[in-house]
């Protein structure tokens, strides 16, 4: 198994995605191609050396909420889409030490 597949498996675990062996191999190959293209960025590292990283198109405008209680949704609404529930709780399988 190549190192790249190892990395795909590590990332898939972080992202909690179960992948088949075929998917791991396919994604390793495809990501190699995509990242090869993306590495154009790093070939000319000087391009953006001094640029300020941009997370948002607009600057801060402080859109606050006042501290007011607006009421909550009914538990019926909240739980309407739940795959599994018990009483007013969402229910999940047991958490085992990983």
């Amino acid at each position: 198994m190549s190192i790249k597949e190892d990395k795909i498996k590590y990332v898939a675990r972080l992202a909690r995605l179960k992948l088949t062996d075929e998917e791991v191999a396919l994604f390793a190959r495809q990501l190699d191609g995509i990242l090869g293209y993306v590495d154009k960025l790093n070939e000319r590292l000087d391009v953006a050396k001094d640029a300020v990283p941009m997370s948002h198109p607009h600057a801060a405008s402080n859109p606050f909420r006042e501290d007011e209680v607006r009421g909550s949704a009914s538990s019926e609404t909240v739980l309407a889409n739940a795959p599994q529930k018990k009483g007013d709780f969402f229910k999940v399988p047991r958490i085992i030490e990983e």
Binding site: L41, V47, A48, K49, A51, P53, M54, S55
Partner: peptide, 15 residues
């Protein structure tokens, strides 16, 4: 740093 941060910097240049 190699990907995300770099991309954010180039994003600024594109803008």
């Amino acid at each position: 740093d190699a990907y995300y941060l770099k991309a954010q910097k180039v994003r600024r240049l594109i803008k």
